[in-house]
């Protein structure tokens, strides 16, 4: 279920789906830089990290954090893997963990703009103003509610920001800067 979020970070959809979709630039490979700011309950300041990302349509997502600690997250149809240098932090294999397959399928259908899949998991509300748009996703009853209360997306021709309101009370703001 957690991987479902990744795709939400990177793909914007919603109730106003078709209008938003019309605005989004479709690319086979999408790369860019990100900044993540996570406000964790109990911390004085938000915890910040930054790095680059790469989305290959239908193939996978790479999320490379450069600072403060270098680490790489890879999501493909077959696995979800997190590495720190050569040390594997954790890995989920679709062969042994069938849910991985479901998650990644959801991810790719989202990236392909398959709103039917999205609406199975979220209720979406949104607004379009000029070039810009915003969408708010509320997970439907199910395992996703254990992780998130809601997810906000903002963007124009690209997704520009994702805000994750986690069940634990933590709030994560991810700003995306796609390479031109």
């Amino acid at each position: 279920m957690s991987a479902a979020l990744v795709l939400l970070l990177l793909a914007a959809d919603g109730d106003v789906a078709s209008r938003v979709q019309a605005k989004l630039v479709q690319r086979e490979v999408l790369t860019g830089t990100f900044e993540q700011s996570k406000q964790v309950k109990g911390f004085k300041r938000p915890f910040r990290s930054s790095g680059t990302y790469e989305v290959k349509k239908g193939a996978g997502v790479k999320w490379n954090t450069a600072a403060p600690f270098a680490s790489q997250l890879t999501v493909t149809a077959d696995e979800i893997r997190s590495m720190q240098g050569s040390e594997q932090l954790f890995a989920l294999d679709a062969k042994t963990e069938p849910t991985v397959k479901v998650i990644t399928q959801l991810l790719f259908s989202l990236l392909a703009g398959d709103f039917a899949v999205l609406s199975q998991h979220f209720d979406a509300r949104g607004a379009v103003e000029g070039e810009g748009w915003s969408i708010e996703l509320v997970p439907k009853a199910g395992p996703l509610t254990r992780a998130f209360t809601r997810i906000s997306l903002k963007g124009d021709a690209f997704v520009r920001s994702v805000t994750l309101h986690e069940e634990s009370g933590d709030v994560t703001l991810i700003s995306l800067a796609p390479a031109p």
């Binding site: 279920m1 957690s2 991987a3 979020l5 990744v6 970070l9 993540q36 996570k38 964790v40 309950k41 109990g42 911390f43 915890f47 990290s49 999320w63 954090t65 403060p68 600690f69 680490s71 997250l73 979800i80 997190s82 720190q84 932090l89 254990r146 992780a147 986690e166 634990s168 009370g169 933590d170 994560t172 991810i174």
Partner: peptide, 20 residues
Amino acid sequence: TERALLQLQQPMAARLGDFR
């Protein structure tokens, strides 16, 4: 400590409960 922070920067960390 480093390990805790490393986990915190994972964008997809589905955390359970309060960090502390």
